[in-house]
Design a protein around this nucleic acid. Sequence first.
DNA 1: TCATAGTTGTGATGTACATCACGCAATCAC
DNA 2: GTGATTGCGTGATGTACATCACAACTATGA
Lengths: 190, 190
Amino acid sequence: MQAKEILKQHIAKTASLTDEQFDHFFSYFKPQSFKKGQAIISEGERVNSEYFVLEGILKTFFINDDMKMFILQFAMPTWWASDYNALYSGSKATVSVDCITDAEVLCLSSADREKLCSEIHQVEHFFRWRTNRGYVAAHKRLLSLMNSDAKHRYEELMTQYPQLYNQVPKHLIAAYLGVSRETLSRLYNS
Amino acid sequence: MQAKEILKQHIAKTASLTDEQFDHFFSYFKPQSFKKGQAIISEGERVNSEYFVLEGILKTFFINDDMKMFILQFAMPTWWASDYNALYSGSKATVSVDCITDAEVLCLSSADREKLCSEIHQVEHFFRWRTNRGYVAAHKRLLSLMNSDAKHRYEELMTQYPQLYNQVPKHLIAAYLGVSRETLSRLYNS
DNA sequence: TCATAGTTGTGATGTACATCACGCAATCAC
DNA sequence: GTGATTGCGTGATGTACATCACAACTATGA
């Protein structure tokens, strides 16, 4: 399927745009290709854009002073990724985004998103609902981190996104679950 | 300060409404008073509204099968609280909201919020930005849960919201930090 | 005013994890 | 093809927490 059609169907689930409106909307998105391992947003840099995934898997992550990595999100096709803190506040990135596999994305600058939101009411509507879904998902994950042990979190993740099992190295899944790779290995061998 | 003025100043930080627009907007909010300990949203019930806090402190929380409580949010004046999952999906509440102190709130139904969002573009703009701030805050907390130990999280919380120290029982602060009340007690006595 | 419930502190013990250390494929680079 | 890198498993040990048990103090309400 074409990039345009993928985005169109994605938007149509939440907002009603006329064809002209959608064409205008789409014209601000820049297609980009990335290779496995390539960085899209690096900590400390300025962040101007957010990214809609067409193909491949991205990760949003943070690396602490001990060089330990924590993954906030795996972004799969039709998901969005960026450092939304930096993007909305204008500050420098505190989290990074890179490619777990080769990836095709559509890039939308923050300035263009705000322009589109103010031009087309339904675009603002779309972004409100999208962000709300992210907010709810983050709260679910907070509860799961506080309430469940690592084994339970692992099983939840594998049930919801079984494709991660084959497509994503185990140490990244561990970094998402918030356990060491050794612990994760012991969990599913039991 | 009047309820109306508090809300007006709160909105004005993110959106530009004319006085007429704000009057219309405000007319949908219902003032409500609650006593300490009173429930606002209970797990399993239908959720119709969200709440803007004028005075007092609310908590949004979840109780698991072992009757252990986890606090997602303390809502202080000018904060919003609800079960946003239930509110946006129409399902029943999975988290509860109640009052830690006596509280004055403004209640806005979900139907009215959607009506106002579609009538007044700037209202939709406001809610998009508000939700984005919540999303970013939730991700910060996810990182803090995965990266920091309980002592560090406690100090962060007390630095950012020192008023919680006196106004909120310690076992609720523990339920927010994700540790037992015993552990919390040992943390700050050292 | 007395009883009861809610809040906080502290010791003893248990456990789910992290960390360190090592070996062993599979894949990649040149 | 060979050395280097990446990914994965597993044992030994350490630790930050949970849990249980009990005591004391404070606020609330009949």
